[in-house]
Design a protein around this nucleic acid. Structure first.
Lengths: 206, 206
DNA sequence: ATTGACGGCTAATTCAAATTAGCTTATAAT
DNA sequence: ATTATAAGCTAATTTGAATTAGCCGTCAAT
């Protein structure tokens, strides 16, 4: 198997739990199953490993974003979920997304790693906000806008609606990230939140 | 001035920006204006400094919590704000609270430090969730419950309402923590969120 | 005035982590 | 068959951070 790649995997796992400064190259090497000096056949420094992880993260993210733009809006909007847009469907979609981001190996570890490094560098701070705040809100705002235009939902500020839809989901995810044992509880809250959100914006509003 | 106390201040400032593992005792000493070995006249190790900060944080937090329980609910609920509970009043209160937590020196630094250490230790994870998720939600849920009973708001699940009220506020605060330049933008979003929340739960609901 | 503790300093010490040097083996291309 | 390269290893080396040792001045209490 590809040692160079495995180094990144192991390093990411460690960085995401302890943070860059608390991880030693010896630990990375041990996880890979080689000795520390051998790491330098593949990367020229510990920092270099970190940078490679960041590059990988950015690449995956851009890939996913491109996919969403190509397929996302059109397909999602034409899908049966949105044709009926029942409360149950929204819950199913929200829960699915939540569980994916919570459990997907890369999503989860990237998120934790960025969480731990977000204050150490302006570039990382910007990346964090983009990936876990601005982009999700932009995307969901677009979705809600569409649902409003289709008459499925009522509301006049899709941005704020997106904020109100997304924030609890994100917050619940951070709780699970640090206290995995609370996942069931968080899933229940998530469902209640989505149902309530859906009910609120279905009928009324000025 | 009290050196022992100043060490904690400087260390907290550093830990909250770089994380424990990336701070050197020499940096702490430099910030205090003494040499590194002199630190050991006051604390027996770097870890000991960290623990002292944690103790201080817990103490302040418990103090504040006690204050709130003594005065909080009664006084708040009898206050003019809640007598009228106009949308503007809610915005004013929400914004005030937001700015306090965002700018208060200790609140801000404790929050950032815990953010960076939350995965390193189960105890810290629990502390984080308690202070920035469970307790705020409990408190606000109680407030909302009262407002509902007084007929000021409509709704049947104060817990979920609290989640929907609190999550955007918290999320906006984390954005400001890592990108202070976005404070104005976040404050605008905060205001819109509170106004919308207030309007939603004022009249309707099933 | 003496004494002792408090808090500072410089100079060691210790220790561990990152990185480099240089040797070895396997394998794949010439 | 030879050779070059890739990728591993052990044994240094370097570095630098945490901590300890031991000295000194101040000041408050005896």
């Amino acid at each position: 198997m590809d040692t160079k790649k495995k180094i990144l995997d192991v390093a990411l796992a460690l960085f995401s739990e302890k943070g860059y400064g608390n991880v030693y190259v010896g630990q990375i090497a041990e996880g890979v199953g080689i000795k520390a000096p051998s790491l330098y056949k593949h990367y020229k420094s510990k920092q270099d490993i970190f940078n490679a992880i960041l590059d990988e993260m950015r690449e995956r993210y851009n890939q996913k974003a491109a996919d969403l733009n190509m397929n996302g809006n059109d397909i999602l909007m034409d899908s049966e979920v949105y044709k009926n847009a029942s409360e149950d469907d929204l819950v199913k979609m929200g829960t699915g997304l939540f569980l994916f981001f919570l459990h997907d190996e890369y999503e989860c570890k990237f998120r934790k790693m960025l969480t731990l490094e977000q204050f150490s560098d302006k570039e990382l701070a910007d990346l964090f906000s983009k990936q876990y705040f601005d982009d999700p809100l932009k995307y969901q705002s677009g979705m809600l806008q569409l649902l409003i235009m289709q008459g499925k939902l009522k509301g006049d500020d899709a941005d704020i609606m997106a904020l109100q839809f997304f924030s609890p989901i994100y917050l619940l995810m951070t709780v699970c990230d640090r206290q995995p044992r609370r996942e069931k509880e968080c899933l229940q809250k998530l469902e209640k939140h989505i149902r309530q959100f859906s009910r609120i914006y279905k009928g009324e509003d000025k």
